[in-house]
Write a protein that binds this DNA or RNA. Structure first.
Lengths: 145, 145
DNA sequence: CCTAACTATTACGCATACGAACGAATCTGT
DNA sequence: ACAGATTCGTTCGTATGCGTAATAGTTAGG
């Protein structure tokens, strides 16, 4: 259960720090080949698996709220990476889909991240990587209450 | 080595997502008792261990760059949590120290995070927690190059 | 002494995120 | 069929952080 080990109280800050540094490194990694940051990259990747989805679904998929998505999608629309559409079923909803340019950039981004993620787990064995992924999934639901 | 396992390419996004959700939860957790966010909380905790340190050291300690620290410290100074001082050795440098109010808030924040961090590792055994901490430390240096 | 390096600040523009509130559309219960 | 609740996307204001560049004071090296 790992209760109250002194080191535990630093866990969140270690995560925060790692995220800051890794996001910075990932941004640098990405902008070398494409002009997208990590937020936009997440959208590109998600849309590859769920093209033409609702904005709310995208919001859920990349873990940002509605208003963040509105701005994010708008910037990406201006950049020609995605386009908005309308749903036939429900006139409230709008959909997002990748443009052909979006698909191309996504391909680059995917390759970049494959290399990047391999760097992240350098020095860890499979068992440890599994523990990390388990933590990243579990912790979100642990605090969701 | 965990090379090219299909799941690896999602690692960074899982981290990104976890960080976003956890930061949001932590903010809610904190602002219930004190009026500080996670950035300011990090500063409070760091200063508890390195009171009266230089701004650059703080910058390194909490993983933000110099100009971000200037703004962060200014906001905290206005809130009465920290105060700026001058170094005797080097008159270029300025120092930051906790005010008595800062120490009080830090105490609250520390307790909040103890509880919060315990929630994060719920469902993980010690071995897995160790792997997570190892990952969070290692990954930063792995991409630092 | 002069110059180079360091330290912190400041200002600008930009990206990202949040919560709150809004209008429009849709669904639900009666 | 209609009133009320809910959902969806948007807009607004605010907070935070980054990069870059300019500024200014201080220190250290030659």
């Amino acid at each position: 259960m790992a209760i109250a080990r002194p080191v535990d109280r630093r866990l969140f800050f270690m995560l925060d720090r790692a995220h800051t540094q890794l996001a910075k490194a990932a941004d640098a990694h990405l902008s070398a080949s494409s002009h997208v940051g990590t937020s936009q990259a997440a959208v590109l990747i998600y849309l590859g698996y769920h093209d033409n989805c609702r904005l709310s679904e995208l919001s859920e998929g990349v873990g940002r709220n509605n208003s963040a998505i509105t701005g994010l999608v708008s910037r990406m629309e201006e950049a020609g990476l995605v386009s908005r559409g309308h749903s036939h079923d429900d006139r409230r909803t709008k959909t997002v889909s990748l443009t052909s340019k979006g698909w191309t950039v996504r391909e680059t981004v995917m390759n970049d991240f494959r290399a990047f993620n391999e760097k992240l787990v350098k020095g860890l064995n499979d068992r440890e990587v599994d523990a990390v992924m388990k933590f990243l999934s579990l912790s979100v639901s642990n605090v969701a209450s």
